[in-house]
Design a protein around this nucleic acid. Sequence first.
DNA 1: TTATCTGCAAACGCTTTGCATCGGA
DNA 2: TCCGATGCAAAGCGTTTGCAGATAA
Lengths: 159, 159
Amino acid sequence: MKAEGADQIRQAFQQAGLRCTPQRYAMLQYLAAEPMHPTAEQILRAINRSDPRSSRATIYNNLHALTKAGMVSPVAVNSGPVRYEANRRHHHHFICEWCGELEDIAAREVAYHPRRSQLGGRVVEDFQIVFRGICEKCVQKPRHRGPVCAVTQRGAGSC
Amino acid sequence: MKAEGADQIRQAFQQAGLRCTPQRYAMLQYLAAEPMHPTAEQILRAINRSDPRSSRATIYNNLHALTKAGMVSPVAVNSGPVRYEANRRHHHHFICEWCGELEDIAAREVAYHPRRSQLGGRVVEDFQIVFRGICEKCVQKPRHRGPVCAVTQRGAGSC
DNA sequence: TTATCTGCAAACGCTTTGCATCGGA
DNA sequence: TCCGATGCAAAGCGTTTGCAGATAA
């Protein structure tokens, strides 16, 4: 996904009823251009690298605001710091058990398209598949170390 | 799922090459009998309610040990404290966006049984579906408060 | 007997919060 | 102009760690 145009970003904030501050602008631009799933800390470092000085508190405040407005989504598929992604089309996730990397899986790669919007007496509004296994990079690398810790997601790093 | 027999629990530890201490025994017994997905703190409180005095550090140590041995699994589908479950058969999860409750969904309730164990160049070893929506209890209750915060999972509690 | 486990307490990492100041609309 | 956003610093919560003493096998 490419970076959005300047007007597009301003407009998005307007529609959400949020002020378009330099900090928010930088955050959304970064997240929309970024194929990774950065943590709050990574977002802070990335946007402070180029221009305005954002504070940690502002990053957290705005991640909440943007989440509430539906402009970004928290990705909480493993433990550790929460990761974020700009809202793209419906997709799933893959987690490498060796290097901990988190990748997107396009919905069309998966043959599951439930028709029912119910499950027992529950109303289902969304679903998301999390695959676990070994990523492409790790498959073709010799296994230096063991897999990452299933709880902390730390302990390896061979990718 | 019912509580396991005493011998069964001792045996499980033996097979894993782990000592069967009173603390570990209580933890596994509790997790095997418990249909919830308790946090470390909840496990601590639950097992200290009945018998031996376990410490917080021991709970965390053992959750790692039991996870490494494949006897319990961390459930990290939302942010906040990590939740744990004893290893049962393959299943999925449902998260209520109103009360934050986490429920199991039996695999047979879901018509997705992928044949391939690959996804691009990746090796898939496991997958897990996370459904989001409104749980049975919340569906039939008037909506007192808004949904829980998507980041912190706090802010409601109507269930 | 001894490697392993426990418990305490301190430290750590991530996140939230209170409050004074600032600035976009 | 003024409500909402920012930044700082301190506190909060969940978790990890080091180490001395206890204990299952």
